Amino acid sequence: MSGTLNGRAVVFKWITGEDAADHVRAQQEEAEALFPRMANGPFRVPEPLAFLSGEGLSVMAFAPGRRLSDLVRKAGAAERARLLVLAGGWHRCHTAERRRGAAFGVRYWLRQREVALPKFADGTDRKLARGIQQKLEALAPALRGVPITQARIHGDLTALNLLVDGDVICGVDLQSRAWWPLAKDAARFLVQLTATCPAADGPRLHGIAQADMEAFRASGVLEAEPAHLLPCFIGIELAARLQSPTLAAAPRARTQALARAYLS
């Protein structure tokens, strides 16, 4: 919710539920860690102004710009590529100073998806999820224990949570405290983008437009990661999206089409 505070344009966010205080503290921790180095330049986060964890309230300075999702829908090929280069650059900048090496526990991630399979109510979604699980199992031997990069990622990096104002891009809704594989946010971004703002016809890689993938990766954000890691997380994100009970009919149909392309 937008408003003003002491004459400044701000965004208020109220969080309810048992974990509200923890969410606000996480948002405060992230914002205060990131803002000193992402207050200026092309890759930014909003200025943190106030946090009241007991009330589930956070107040951030208003960030100018339009949602990346709205801009991408109307963009031609060249402008779409420019916007996705910006998005990949933001992901790299956001994680640049909070990274660490780790051995990839591929079985953990596959087990999460395997346990979820019985929860699929829709037959089409269940069939696609089983196909994705089989593909992930085929990828697993090449990924077991390989060195990867973990980072304090956004956690919900999508075109909805990136605001673009000219050549400046600002990430919002920051509240993740977790260390996760760097490729997880990249996969989430590309899956959500393709399911909601698909590119025009062209070559596809793992269901994602090759031009989109190349533009997002142009910053080098994933240059040190194993080749099969991003395809693995694309499958994981796809299966999780298919499982969502709140996904409306049209987005679900697009996600199903993306899953079929991933499996083809």
Rank of each mutant, 00 (worst) to 15 (best):
S219V: 09
C232D: 14
S264Q: 13
I132K: 12
T4R: 11
R204E: 14
G7W: 00
E114A: 14
P198E: 03
N161S: 00
L162C: 06
L49Y: 00
R152E: 13
C197R: 10
A142L: 01
I208T: 04
A215C: 02
A61V: 05
P147G: 11
I15M: 08
V191S: 12
F233I: 15
G235D: 04
R144N: 13
A63W: 05
E214T: 10
C232Q: 15
F216M: 05
L49H: 00
A159L: 01
G88L: 08
E225S: 11
T16K: 13
Q28H: 06
R92P: 03
R204A: 15
R152I: 09
L182C: 10
S176M: 08
A103L: 11
F51M: 05
C93K: 14
H23F: 13
E114M: 14
A121R: 09
V24R: 02
A253V: 01
P46E: 04
R130W: 13
R73F: 06
Q175W: 06
S69D: 10
L86N: 01
H94E: 08
A200Q: 09
E47Y: 00
S244P: 10
A21P: 03
D185Y: 15
I236M: 15
M60Y: 05
G17Y: 09
G65R: 02
A63K: 00
I169S: 01
V172A: 02
D201H: 08
G220P: 03
L34I: 08
P226S: 12
A77W: 05
A239C: 14
V59K: 00
V85C: 08
G41M: 00
N161V: 00
R107N: 14
G56D: 00
R130Q: 14
A249L: 08
F51Y: 06
A31M: 00
A195D: 10
V11A: 03
F216A: 06
R252N: 04
H94G: 10
G171R: 01
A39G: 07
A257N: 10
S176C: 07
Q256T: 12
S53I: 06
P147F: 04
A250T: 10
L229N: 03
V172G: 02
G131S: 13
I236K: 13
W90M: 01
P141T: 07
L117P: 05
A186E: 10
K135W: 11
C232R: 14
C197A: 13
Q28W: 03
P118W: 05
F104W: 07
G101D: 12
L258V: 07
I236W: 15
T158M: 04
L110I: 13
L49P: 00
P42H: 01
D19T: 12
D165A: 01
E32L: 11
D122G: 11
G131M: 12
R8L: 02
A102K: 04
P42G: 01
